Amino acid sequence: MADIMTKSLALKIDDAELETAPASARIKLSGVPDDRAMLRAAAELTRDLHTPNKRIYWTDMLVSAGIGYAAFAATILAPTWPLALVAGVVAVLALYRASLFIHEITHLKHSLLPNFRLVWNLILGVPLLVPSFMYEGVHTMHHARTRYGTVEDPEYLPLALMKPWTLPMFLLVSMLLPVAMLIRFGVLTPLSLVIPPLRRLVVAKYSGLQINPKFSRRAPEGEFRTQWYWQEAGACIFSIALITAVATGVVSLHAFGVYLAVVAGVAVINQVRTLVAHLWENDGEPLTVTAQYLDSVNVPTPGFLAYLWAPVGLRYHALHHLLPSLPYHALDEAHRRISTALEEASAYHKANYPTLRGLMHRLAASTMGAR
């Protein structure tokens, strides 16, 4: 939810369309050595912050989902367009926050939050058509030291080095997410069960919230295979039931339209957040941990808007790349400790940015230079 979803279905971009800017315009992150003092401080100063608070997780997720679904119902039932619009915005923001717990599910040990993944999938993952198997096993590859920013990273494209039209396309893809997911689960899943070649394609290319079109996913194994199958079955049943209900008039076109709009709204906000989660300036070479950190973004300045567009700790995305298993509710304290302990010359302070608008302007300006 990217970051989320952190991502949407892979963009179908040909190799020719991945043309980047001249080498002279690129930032050579591959030459950045590790800042040992920063890495040591990040590990030592946060040793006591790694246990997730069950009360915070359950309360935040359930309250956000409750507000989101109540606002969704109010959007459908609102007597006037202004009221529907206000309720719709609340629904999008609340469900966006609730859906982003897919990111926490991917990183934390499930034994520390028993049944959290199950309940999240039942009330959010399946109804919003983003079950957690679409992110689990994919997002962790993005954090692999030897994969980040390379062709083997499912969640990375050198967006800052690409053509200007790639950014609007990136957002357009997210707007189509609910329709794409209805087709994926309601049509492709049942067909793939009887057409083995299609099944291999669905697993490899349409079973991950990824942005790298060259990435192919492997079939699930072990315990995760069971998780994958029941989640996919749930999303398939939900999709077929919804399509059938709309076709037979049980669910009105108005209600269905609101559903598509809300899910698309959640996906678009997440995609905007994804655009500023990194600087996207690596050209495919392996990076040190410090270089990966510098290609990522913190927006630590307190502000109401930051809590809306980057909730559940995602405004500390660079810090998250240093400490991937740190619970979201501990990131504020971790940032305070590390930034206080380290000098201004430390690499830690160089990944902090003041606003979403400034980051979007930087990315857009970089793509303009790629023309």
Rank of each mutant, 00 (worst) to 15 (best):
L191F: 07
K28F: 14
R273M: 12
G303Q: 09
Y348K: 02
Y96E: 06
S339L: 04
M5W: 09
E44K: 14
I240R: 06
R145W: 01
T75H: 10
L326D: 01
S346D: 02
E232T: 10
H103Q: 09
H361C: 15
T106Q: 11
N53E: 14
A345F: 09
D283E: 07
S366K: 05
T274M: 15
V126F: 04
Y293F: 11
G358R: 04
A71H: 09
A78H: 04
E155I: 00
F224P: 13
G222D: 11
G284W: 07
P311H: 02
F101H: 13
A21Y: 01
N53Y: 01
H329S: 14
A351R: 02
L201N: 03
D60T: 10
L93Y: 06
M368R: 13
F304T: 06
V151S: 14
P154R: 04
Y229L: 14
P354L: 11
L93E: 15
A277D: 15
R357C: 08
A2Q: 06
A70K: 02
R40N: 10
F170A: 02
V86P: 09
A255Q: 07
G137M: 08
L176R: 06
A21F: 02
I211D: 11
A16P: 00
E19L: 15
E333P: 04
W228L: 01
F185Q: 00
R47A: 10
I56A: 12
T226G: 15
L209T: 15
V179T: 14
P82Y: 02
V179E: 07
H139S: 01
P22W: 10
M368V: 12
L118W: 07
R199D: 13
H335I: 03
V266I: 15
L201H: 12
A43D: 07
A2D: 02
A2F: 13
T248K: 10
L242R: 00
V179D: 00
F238N: 13
T51Y: 04
L167C: 02
I13L: 14
V89A: 13
D34G: 01
A247W: 03
H335C: 05
A84W: 05
P178L: 12
F215D: 08
E17Y: 13
L108D: 00
E152D: 15
G257T: 07
M169N: 00
R200P: 04
V289H: 11
